[in-house]
């Protein structure tokens, strides 16, 4: 039997979403961004939101997200995606607007824009990919880099005495009245991918229902920046990142569901 005989609609078990382009991903092999992109696009396609959705991708590894996400996209300057998204949603209140930001972007240079957009309760989805490092610029220390973790600008490990402690922006914005759904996920195993996708679906439904700001953190690996193999980086993430950035819902339907400390 020829392979062409097998390719039939009735035999279809999995299909790449139309909302991912055929462009070759510019992410390093093993990186979690590709999966995070895919599930976000699957959710938009499955919910029938393609004609209404506008994405904003600021500077960072995902600045080229518009090459891969087959929807209307704006590239934004470093840290400013929540402000750019505010400009869109305020003038197009019935559209679906999301940002896709890294940890350096969201938790360092864009701290003010993130906190204030969340505090105003802008009706947007913020997808926050946290890999504890500046990936695109070559592995420098991020606001989320763990204590004692090595990076090119903390070559002897992050000294919290002089470099500050990692910033838990997700817990921080959960305290603001404008946020409606705040949750933390990962995409390193099929089970985690399913849970993350479910959370994304909930977040997009919530903005459709005009419930306010949705923040989905995805704790991810950066095998290049961490100087590990992809498999090792995922193991290291489970052992080191998850205890500091525990997975699960933090705020649901405007109510904090987890003890914050």
């Amino acid at each position: 039997m020829d392979i062409k005989d097998i390719i039939k609609p009735e035999n279809l078990v999995y299909k790449k979403t139309e909302l991912m382009t055929d462009n070759v991903l510019s992410y390093c092999p093993g990186c979690g961004h590709g999966t995070a992109h895919r599930i976000a696009m699957e959710v938009i396609e499955e919910m029938g939101l393609t004609e209404d959705t506008i994405g904003v991708a600021p500077v960072g590894c995902s600045v080229l997200a518009y090459d891969f996400m087959n929807i209307d996209m704006q590239q934004a300057s470093h840290g400013r995606a929540p402000a750019v998204a505010t400009g869109i949603i305020r003038t197009w209140p019935d559209k679906i607007v999301f940002t896709y930001q890294g940890d350096g972007d969201l938790a360092a240079i864009g701290t003010a824009e993130t906190i204030h957009a969340c505090n105003r309760g802008e009706n947007i989805v913020i997808i926050f990919v946290n890999n504890g490092i500046y990936g695109m610029t070559g592995g420098q220390m991020a606001p989320t880099t763990l204590p004692n973790m090595k990076s090119s600008t903390s070559p002897f490990g992050r000294d919290v005495e002089t470099m500050g402690a990692p910033l838990k922006m997700t817990e921080l914005v959960a305290l603001l009245p404008g946020t409606n759904f705040v949750t933390r996920h990962a995409v390193h195993s099929p089970g985690h991918v399913r849970k993350a996708k479910k959370a994304l679906r909930k977040a997009f439904q919530n903005v459709k229902d005009k419930k306010g700001t949705q923040l989905i953190e995805i704790v991810s690996n950066c095998n290049s920046g961490w100087k590990m193999t992809p498999v090792d980086s995922n193991e290291w993430m489970v052992e080191n990142m998850f205890p500091f950035y525990p997975l699960g819902d933090i705020k649901v339907d405007g109510k904090i569901v987890k003890e914050l400390h």
């Binding site: 400013r80 750019v84 505010t86 869109i88």
Partner: peptide, 9 residues
Amino acid sequence: NMVYGAAAS
């Protein structure tokens, strides 16, 4: 940047 987002839309 809000101007940017609105103008781009």
